[in-house]
Amino acid sequence: MSDLSELYQEILLEHNSKPRNFYKLEEADRSADGFNPLCGDKIALYLKLDGDIISEVGFQGSGCAISRASASMLTQSVKGQSVERAEEIFGAFHRMLTEPGEEPDYDALEDLESLAGVAEFPTRIKCAILAWHTLKAALEGTQESATTE
C-alpha cells in the first residue's frame, strides 16, 4: 500500500477543510442529490447553465475528506466549461482512478490529479467519484438520486 501522504495530499486536505463553492445555488437550473449507501456520504449539487456553459456550480453535503475534496475540485474544474468539456473531465478523472497504469490527461485534470492516490485504495474510489456521478445526474436531469452502487 502506498504511503498515506500520497493519498492525503496537502491540496486534498486543504479542499476538505475549506471547500470551494460550498453553498446552495438558490436559482439553480439543475440540481441532483448523490448518496453513497455504503458509507453514508451525501451530496447535493447545483448548476446554473448559460446555454451550453456551466456558469455556476455549488454543492453541499457531508462526507469524508476524499468525497468532499473531490466535490470541491469538481466545482472549480467545471465552472465556466461547456457540458461537453465537463464530461471529458469526468472521463479523464474516471480513467485516472480505474486505470492507474495509463498516463493521466493532465490538461483536463489540473488539481484533480492530486486525487490519483485514491486509485491505490479501492474501497475509497467510490468516495472520490460520488460528486461526479451527481454532476452527471444533474446534467441529465434525472430525478432519482445518484449513487455509487
Binding site: L7, Y8, C39, D41, G63, C64, A65, I66, R124, C127
Partner: peptide, 21 residues
C-alpha cells in the same frame, strides 16, 4: 473535523482493522 472513513483508512495503513460507517 475528521470523517470516520478517513480514520478507518489511516488506521488500516497502520494494520488496525476497525469498522467505519
Amino acid at each position: 473535523g475528521i470523517h470516520p472513513h478517513d480514520i478507518g483508512t489511516i488506521l488500516d495503513t497502520e494494520g488496525i482493522a476497525v469498522r467505519t460507517g
